[in-house]
Design a binder for these strands. Structure first.
Length: 981
RNA sequence: GGGCGAUUAGCUCAGUUGGCUAGAGCGCACGGAUCACACCCGUGAGGUCACAGGUUCGAGUCCUGUAUCGCCCACCA
């Protein structure tokens, strides 16, 4: 029989066949609507993976969940777009490429021309982009591959230029001289979010600064003040000593001057509230360590910068961009030999030298251990240097006049965020409930961040990225070339820089002629590139062709859901909402689903350095893509982390790799699905939809349809609520426990009976079809593979009068099951439950008495109603309990030599099987269990407060329960009595 | 320092708005080459729900506190 499925489930073969099928038609490539109002679209935009490396298991989880959502909606016949692509990931990618070039060729970035180096990064990008897309396809992601984008491709670049110009025109982009988080290793500025705080075991050094003139305080002459610092090397740039105005010594000291050691600079003592008063008893660590005197270094400390601004202090930068001590960047009085000696030293080297100098000069008063938080670069992991630098910023809390009408003006309630500022545009939808986080708790992260948002530094001292479209020329209001003179598209601002006033110009996008004329006239383009997140922020609409009003944008924007990890809620999610509102006028998605982070078996993050990561392709090789997806989805509840035990494995080709025994769960399920389907199809020979008559269905047919109906509506509701584990376990139970363990087992008998075969075949084909549909979002390959075969064997799978046939060419575009609610029948489900309990009881006795496969006879003494049910279905009991015959009646006598057990109130007799001791033990145990339950229920009902205050249905339930216990107890006692006779 | 979370069977986790004798998979024990599947079938054992208080007729679930673990955020005197 050619239609038969292969004997063993082979993921590789099925995955290849199915991928070919999906590629053969535009199943995942929706046409934009032609403006029809009733077109329901559903859009997910992929979080574009960085082209730094191949995807890891976290990506596999992320994309599995997106694919589940998108397939679910596609089957619900939405016009479904899953937009794929990759991110250029500025710093990260440039860093890996630099590292590789250094390792392989011994060359540094600066050994290349800019374009040549970018070419090298581009080559890396091409390689990894292909790898990533290949991985996504291997996982079964149903992305619209024809629309694949890259954050630096022409379409996205156009959006970047358009948005930059728009921001510039709105006066939101400005040149700021600021203390930035400078990474001396990569020599680039990091956003606050890119700084990792680590606890460092450091010291407080207590340094004495001599007063220019000794002063009398409380009758004592003092000739110095002592400052406590964790960063002695910055003292070279001190421009004041601050003390709290409330300090008793302040009256005598404020206004005095100290002579800065090493440098010889005279600096004032000033009063500032910021200074913490010393207090050795305080809980506040700073108060315990404080001397009351704070050295103020505006160029090298953010707090000191603030103090410097308040007191108009000079700003003296004593470091070069590489973190070495230098007099070339604003330090003009490095004339003393001691100061000269320090020039060129690395900052940490200089720290030691300076401390040593103070020690030698007897000016080092004390050194105390101090553990404190130090910001490190998330990229190079070296300590961040607060560094004074010219950077481009985006003003995030500045009201945007022309947006006041659409988005409102004034502060958002309870915040200092204007509704028509960029931060406000992102915050308001959350406050209004239009933007929703799942799980809800993550909305706090988003909200807190936006409420405390500071301006966004967007310059990056890199080559890989979108180059900043600003040209500059020295001088205030430098004249523009003629070609640009009349163009209203040009914005110009002037700013002070280290070299004096400069004029900046941002030509409108699409005016290459103006750019050329600017350069011809001696204007120079900014060397820096934009922060990666600048282009990522536009991803939901840049990919659809914004700023053009494309049909895609009209059809698929705003999108529906963003699915991502919690670590980029602030960096990315908030900025997409911000820019979506700002550029397109609407939020890019309504729901943000935040999934768990995958950890290893010990709760550690998976990482390259720990060697505990799992490559999705390895999992696909070892277990199959569906198995991996099944396992990942089944572990996705709304917890923050999921643990995935990691086990080493040797591949056939000898490679040592990591995989996880957890994937066995998914593989076993797929294997079961394959074999159950194979069995079903073996039994579908002669399948004829016309042979179905609903009136001829037996109780197992009606039962499985009832279970199916309940399952499909629960699964649908769960997916609507972004639950992944729950629908999968519902389906697992339905498929494995209901369908395979019971329905199929009973169907085996019916398939041999010509009178029943046609009905059983139709129901079986129908239920299998529906199971495949419901499982398809989770395990798309195997279900599609089986569906294709099933369509050959049993085309047109409907049930006349119950559900019309609605076969599709491919499962992936078939209708999502719905509309079986009328089949739910709780009476039938209860009857089958009783039958199952009875069968289990017989099997248990077989086990206990070692009568595995002998033919036996059984009977039961059951309450009248129960006896009727059991007799009606005695054949079902006999079939699966392997009984010759089974009869029930009220008051049926116990045969001699019968093993007995209790199924609820029913006394079950399995004939000619005896072991008195075992029997006694078992019945005693049953009795104890019943008594325990009975006692608990009695206790409840004896409590007046319970009877009076609990909900009536709960009390009624308890009463009914108690009656059952009493009946059961009576029955078990009777059995025990008989046994003891 | 602030915020968020976790703690339920040997392991990984479910447990809806408080309400039957707290569930699943794996693992374990026992039995099974039966004609879909040994990646399988059948049966079973296994839990003072981290700890201490409180609210309630009733708490794994709500509140307070403690302990342990994790993540995010925060200007390094």
């Amino acid at each position: 029989m050619t239609e038969q499925l292969a004997k063993a489930y082979d993921p590789q073969t099925v995955e290849a066949q199915v991928n070919a099928l999906w590629a053969s038609a535009p199943y995942f490539h929706p046409a934009p609507s032609d403006g029809a109002a009733d077109c329901k679209a559903y859009t997910i935009v992929i979080p574009p993976p960085n082209v730094t490396a191949a995807l890891h298991l976290g990506h596999a989880l992320n994309n599995t969940l997106q694919d589940i959502l998108i397939r679910f909606r596609r089957m619900q016949q939405f016009r479904t777009l899953w937009m794929p692509g990759t991110d250029h990931a500025g710093i990260a990618t440039q860093t890996v490429v630099e590292k590789r070039i250094l390792a392989e060729e011994g060359k540094r970035r600066t050994d290349f021309e800019r374009d040549a180096f970018i070419g090298r990064v581009q080559a890396w990008k091409d390689e990894y982009e292909a790898t990533i897309i290949g991985q996504l396809k291997a996982m079964g992601c149903s992305c619209d591959w024809q629309r694949t984008r890259f954050t630096m491709d022409d379409v996205c670049a156009k959006a970047v230029r358009a948005n930059f110009f728009k921001l510039f025109k709105d006066g939101l982009i400005y040149r700021g001289k600021r203390l930035v988080n400078w990474d001396p290793a990569t020599q680039t500025v990091l956003a606050d979010d890119e700084v990792e705080h680590e606890t460092v075991q450091g010291h407080f050094w207590y340094l004495r600064y001599p007063l220019a003139t000794p002063v009398e305080v409380d009758g004592r002459q003092i000739d110095h003040v002592t400052v406590a610092t964790t960063r002695p090397e910055t003292m070279l740039g001190d421009t004041a000593i601050a003390m709290n105005p409330g300090d008793p010594r302040a009256a005598a000291l404020v206004g005095q001057r100290v002579r800065l050691p090493i440098v010889g600079r005279l600096i004032p003592i000033i009063a500032d509230e910021h200074v913490v008063l010393p207090n050795p008893e305080s809980d506040d660590e700073k108060a315990r360590f404080s001397t009351g005197f704070l050295k103020v270094t505006p160029a090298h400390d953010p707090d000191d910068w603030q103090i410097g601004q308040r007191h108009d202090l000079p700003i003296i930068n004593v470091m070069a961009p590489d973190g070495s001590i230098s007099d070339k960047y604003g330090w003009e009085d490095a004339t003393e030999p001691e100061a000269q000696n320090l020039l060129g030293m690395d900052r940490f080297e200089a720290r030691e030298a300076i401390v040593e100098w103070f020690r030698q000069e007897k000016l080092l008063e004390d050194v105390r251990d101090y553990a404190h938080e130090v910001g490190h670069s998330y990229r190079s992991h070296v300590p961040i240097e607060p560094y004074l630098s010219d950077q481009w910023y985006i003003a995030v809390k500045k009201p945007i006049e022309h947006l006041a009408e659409k988005f409102g003006a004034g502060l958002i309630e309870g915040t200092d965020v204007p509704a028509n500022s960029l931060a406000g545009l992102a915050l308001k939808p959350l406050v209004d409930g239009r933007l929703q986080f799942i799980p809800e708790r993550y909305s706090k992260t988003y909200q807190n961040w936006l409420e405390n948002l500071r301006d966004w530094p967007i310059s990056r001292q890199l080559w890989w990225g979108h180059r900043i479209p600003i040209w500059s020329k020295a001088g205030r209001d430098a004249p523009l070339p003629d070609q640009c003179a009349g163009a209203d598209a040009i914005q110009s601002i002037s700013a002070e820089s280290d070299e004096g006033p400069v004029t900046f110009v941002c030509p409108a996008p699409g005016h290459e002629d103006q750019e050329a004329s600017l350069e011809a006239a001696g204007w120079i383009r900014d060397n820096d590139v934009l922060d990666t997140w600048f282009s990522s922020a536009l991803w939901p609409f840049s990919t659809m062709g914004w700023p053009e009003e494309t049909p895609e944008l009209k059809t698929f924007y705003p999108g529906d859901v963003l699915c991502t990890a919690r670590e980029i809620i602030t960096l990315w999610v908030s900025r997409m909402v911000m820019m979506g509102q700002y550029c397109v006028g609407d939020i890019p998605f309504k729901d943000v689903y935040i999934h768990a982070m995958i950890q290893d078996g010990q709760g550690r993050k998976m990482s390259k350095s720990l060697g505990n990561g799992i490559d999705p392709l390895v999992a696909i090789d070892s277990h199959g893509a569906d198995a991996m997806r099944f396992t990942l989805a089944s572990m996705t509840t709304d917890t923050q982390d999921i643990r995935m035990p990691v086990a080493p494995m040797t591949l056939p080709d000898g490679r040592e790799v990591n995989t996880s025994p957890k994937f066995d769960v998914g593989r076993n399920f797929c294997n079961k699905l394959w074999n159950a389907s194979r069995f079903a199809m073996m039994n579908l020979e002669g399948f004829d939809p016309a042979g179905f008559d609903a009136a001829r269905m037996d109780v197992t047919d009606r039962w499985i349809l009832s279970r199916l109906a309940a399952t499909q509506s629960e699964v649908t509701a769960a997916l609507d609520a972004f639950k992944f584990s729950e629908p999968l376990s519902l389906l697992y139970r339905f498929f494995w426990n209901d369908l395979c363990d019971w329905y199929l087992e009973w169907a085996k008998f019916r398939m041999r009976d010509e009178a029943q075969k046609a009905t059983a075949q139709n129901v079986l084909a129908f239920v299998l079809d529906r199971v495949l549909r419901l499982l398809h979002p989770f395990v798309p390959f195997i279900t599609e593979g089986i569906y294709q075969k099933l369509s050959e064997v049993a085309p047109g799978r409907g049930l006349t009068g119950i559900a019309p046939a609605d076969a599709a060419q491919a499962l992936t575009v078939s209708q999502w099951p719905a509309g079986l609610d009328g089949q739910i029948d709780s009476d039938i489900e209860e009857e089958i439950r009783v039958v199952q309990e009875t069968i289990r009881a017989v099997r248990d006795i077989r086990n206990k008495y070692n009568k595995a496969s002998e033919s036996l006879t059984a009977s039961a003494d059951a309450p009248e109603a129960m006896a009727q049910i059991l007799n009606r279905h005695s054949q079902l009991v006999c079939q699966l309990a392997l009984l010759e015959s089974f009869q029930a009646s009220q008051g049926a006598p116990k045969p001699n030599n019968a093993a007995t057990t209790l199924v609820e109130e029913t006394k079950l007799y399995v004939h000619d099987v005896i072991d008195r001791e075992a029997e006694l033990a078992r019945l005693e145990k049953q009795k104890q269990e019943i008594e325990r339950g009975k006692k608990a229920t009695e206790g409840k009902l004896a409590n007046e407060n319970f009877v009076n205050r609990a909900k009536p249905e709960v009390v009624a339930q308890a009463r009914e329960r108690l009656e059952q216990f009493q009946e059961q107890l009576k029955a078990v006692e009777a059995l025990l009595a008989e046994l003891k006779d």
